[in-house]
Design a protein around this nucleic acid. Sequence first.
DNA 1: GAAATTAGTGGGTCGACACCCATGATGGGG
DNA 2: CCCCATCATGGGTGTCGACCCACTAATTTC
Lengths: 147, 147
Amino acid sequence: MDPRTPPTLSELTTYLLSKTGKEARSRLAARLAEEGLRLWHMAVLAALADFGPHAQRDLALRVAVDASDIVKVLDDLAEAGYAERARDTVDRRRVNVAITPEGRTALNRLRLKAAVVQDVILAPLDGDERDQLHALLSRVYDGIAGA
Amino acid sequence: MDPRTPPTLSELTTYLLSKTGKEARSRLAARLAEEGLRLWHMAVLAALADFGPHAQRDLALRVAVDASDIVKVLDDLAEAGYAERARDTVDRRRVNVAITPEGRTALNRLRLKAAVVQDVILAPLDGDERDQLHALLSRVYDGIAGA
DNA sequence: GAAATTAGTGGGTCGACACCCATGATGGGG
DNA sequence: CCCCATCATGGGTGTCGACCCACTAATTTC
């Protein structure tokens, strides 16, 4: 029995999107697990690195995760020394979160892992084609993110 | 707080793949749920329509799902009248599964729903660009499926 | 014909993910 | 000063996908 995909499905660009995306996701997750981290940890570190410190509530909005779920992510990051939580002095309900230097070096490691995974996933494409794909996907992504 | 994606992530093609794929997947799942079906049901119907009847075991291999999980999918499809199970006469351990005419019309409905979802997801792209995207993704998909 | 293998079926587990609610601390408006 | 809103936190729920094991029936092998 050959395991070919039914044409009815492979004709669907969204099917290919879903499958390749899922594969990329799981491969990266496996690499992050080597450090005891998950995808949310990387997303939070990236947000903190790219946009600076956040109030914890704003960080949850940023990465589009429930406020009650980001708590454990930050617990992990704080325990690993990758992020610091500090009570806001003017509004003591708020907790300001910042990435630490160790967090930045960790994020660089994660980025490298992601680049390796991506290189494997996109192996069939040459440099120009990868750029094309990225450009097309960026527009698709902006379309669904903006809506 | 603007919810922009951190550049560290949006620079990753695999991140865009994962996000857009997940979005497409969930939107199609929502449309299939209107008929009380899930993605596996569509995948099985597509396999039966494209490759003809399967022994149940081979069907599980085809769609890459555990043999003990495909049972419920076929229960649902049989109850809906979309698939028929029949004991193999020569090897009475086997159960041969075939799509019914009602199953084919149902599959056509699902394909239409998928096309509508796809049209929304790929809205930012014109026809040529959609073809480009499909071609690129096909090669990426073949790469990970063949490995 | 006995033993090993294969097929289908039911059951359970496990992790990821997304939500939702209750609580305690704090801040702001009447 | 009291009431209400906000924030962080903990806990719980439900779904979903993937996986694994046990059991039964049927077939193949020796």
